[in-house]
Design a binder for these strands. Structure first.
Lengths: 184, 184
DNA sequence: TCTCCTCGTTCGGCTTGACGAACAGGCGGA
DNA sequence: TCCGCCTGTTCGTCAAGCCGAACGAGGAGA
C-alpha cells in the first residue's frame, strides 16, 4: 500500500485506458456524463476526484475501479523452496509460508502450508468476506469450517469461508497444500 | 463490476474495517487526518468522498483501496481430484484444470496444471495487468516470460506478468503445479 | 446525583471539485 | 484562404465535500 494519494496514478491510468479504447477525451467525458473540463484536469494530474466521478469513468472504460487508483508495475519474482519465512505453528506440527502477500490492488495472500499428523491448527475468523482455497499437494488433510470439515487427498480442492472459525489437520506425514486466502 | 456507485458499499466497508480494528470513529478520523464529521457522514452512507479522503482511510485501516469500494459474498465448495474439467493442451503433454473460476468481485482463477516433459506450452498474453503465480508441487518446471524463463522445483514459487507471452515446460515426468492467474 | 470523559451526530463556514462556455490549435474540404 | 468540425485547455460560477465547533447521549467514578 503506497502512502501517497494516487492522483498521479489516476491521471496516467485514465489517459492510458482512454487511449486503449481509442476514444477522445471529449467522447469519454460525454459517455461518462461528466464535464470534459473535469476529465481534462484529472488527466493532467490536477484535482482530487470524487468516487462518483471516478466510478463513472471506470464503468465507461470497462475496468475495475482499482485499476484507476493502483499503480501498474510488477517484475518477475521467484521464491525458492525454503526461502520464504516459514512460520511454525505454536501448538501444532504445522508450518505456513507466505509466498505472496497481498499487493496493492490485489486481494489474496498465497501460502504454502506443511503439516504432520497429530494436531490441529485452529484458525480464528479472518477479515469478513475472506475466502480460503486449499489445494492439497501431498498427504491428506481434514479441513474446513469447524463442524463441517472435509477430508482431502492429493489434488483435491476445497473452498470455504475464512471469516468463521476453521481448522486444518494433517492426517498423514509430510502433508502439504497450497492455501490461497482471498479477500473481498 | 457493478454499475452503481458504491457509496453504500463504502459506508458498510468503512464501518466494518473500523470495527475490525476496534477503534472509534473519532480515533479513526484523527489518525486519518480527516474531520470526524466527514467520517460520520461517510459511514452513514451520505456523501461522495474524494479519492484523497478515502485513501487516507484505507491507509489507516491498512486495507487495499479496492476493499472499500467492492462488495462481499461466498459459500462452501469442494472439488475432488479429477472432478474438474481438465483441459488437455492440443500440442503438448500438458493439462490444466480450472478449480475456481473468477467469481464476480474476485480477480483470480485457480488452476491445477500437470505436464509431462517433451513439449512446451506457449501462452499468449492475457488481459493486461494479469499476474501469474506458480507454485510447483511435483517435478520440475521451466516457466516465465518468453526469454526470461526460470527453472523451478517442488515448493518453488514464481510470479511473473501474464500480459506478455510466456511458457510452461515440464522437465520431469508427472510434473504438477498450482497456477493462480490474478487479474487487476 | 453530579462530574468528567468519550462516543457519534448535527450545524455554519470555507474550500474545492464539477460544470458549462469560451478559447486556441489542428485537419480536411470547398 | 476560409470554413466547419474536431481536438484538448482555461476560466468563472455554483454546488458540495470537508472542516471545526457545538451538541446530546451514554458510562465510569466520586
Amino acid at each position: 500500500m503506497q502512502r501517497t494519494p494516487p492522483l498521479e496514478t489516476i491521471a496516467r491510468a485514465l489517459r492510458r485506458e482512454r487511449e486503449r479504447h481509442g476514444i477522445s477525451l471529449t467522447e469519454l467525458a460525454r459517455r461518462a456524463g461528466i464535464a470534459k473540463s473535469t476529465l481534462s484536469q484529472l488527466e493532467s494530474g490536477a484535482g482530487n476526484p470524487s468516487v462518483e466521478t471516478l466510478w463513472a469513468l471506470a464503468v465507461v472504460l470497462d475496468v475495475p475501479f482499482s485499476r484507476l487508483v493502483d499503480p501498474p508495475a510488477e517484475p518477475v519474482h521467484v521464491l525458492r523452496a525454503g526461502e520464504g519465512h516459514a512460520i511454525p505453528s505454536e501448538h501444532a506440527p504445522f508450518s505456513g509460508t507466505l509466498v505472496s502477500a497481498c499487493p496493492p490492488g490485489a486481494r489474496r495472500d498465497l501460502h504454502v502450508i506443511a503439516g504432520e499428523p497429530g494436531a490441529t491448527r485452529e484458525a480464528h475468523a479472518h477479515v469478513r468476506g475472506t475466502t480460503e482455497h486449499l489445494i492439497v499437494t501431498a498427504g491428506r488433510w481434514l479441513t474446513g469450517p469447524v463442524g463441517a470439515e472435509v477430508e482431502l487427498g492429493p489434488g483435491d480442492y476445497a473452498r470455504f469461508p475464512g471469516d468463521q472459525p476453521h481448522a486444518y489437520t494433517a492426517l498423514e506425514p509430510s502433508s502439504a497444500a497450497v492455501l490461497v486466502m482471498e479477500y473481498i
